[in-house]
Amino acid sequence: MLTPAPADSTPAGERPVMIRMAGVEKYYGTYHALKAVNLDVHQGERIVICGPSGSGKSTLIRCINALEHHQGGEIVVDGTQVGKSSRGLDKVRAEVGMVFQSFNLFPHLTVLQNCTLAPRKVRGLAPKEAEAIAMKYLERVRIPEQANKYPGQLSGGQQQRVAIARALCMAPKVMLFDEPTSALDPEMVKEVLDTMISLAHDGMTMICVTHEMGFARQVADRVIFMDKGEIVEEGPPATFFANPKSERTRTFLGQILHH
């Protein structure tokens, strides 16, 4: 397979920061879900976050577009503070695409309508324009022929690719993936991963919560391991997988790479 080829040749760490999380704290009642999380994501960087369930990895990416509200620290997306003003929040949500574990397509709308809704309502595009963009991205995820079907008529893998196209139609600067392959039958995982890999090769800034370590090895610039609401360890995939520093990381990798 191809090696990761960033859109420009500047090392990821030297490009401008797209997302800055500094000292982010998140509580659910008394449960401390994120503990002083610091994370800088640079433009075009591909980040994979892994960790046991309940480690806070989904919470972390859901704080970026404020599906969850953080209580302490700050999150800045492309220069806009998250949670300071509702206008800032609108801006962030329009620039950040998200793909969910359970697809969350709108079942009463066709595939094409799923893709054109936000560009029309949020970006104010004319229907024809929005449709042209939608078809471009449906071709991109290789299902233009399904445009007039309803989500319920598609397989899980196809639905997830529509969900990716739907997010891309907003021309986001960042894509968040929240366990995008976890709800899929095994034979459909590859088609979704392939779509994500091609997106990565185009230089999209991506944060992926996933247990697909093959994907992490292949495209990630950095792998982050979280446990109990903290970032325990991070590093480029080569060193992360070969020499995990922390005992917790070793135990986790031992568990998921064993079978």
Binding site: N104, F106, A167
Partner: peptide, 29 residues
Amino acid sequence: PKGQWEASTALGLHYVTRMREIILPQAAK
């Protein structure tokens, strides 16, 4: 389902659009 709210919120849809285009048509059924 909560996912419908989250997906429409994540797309940047505002309350009125979200209700009119996503939630109410499904709730009406």
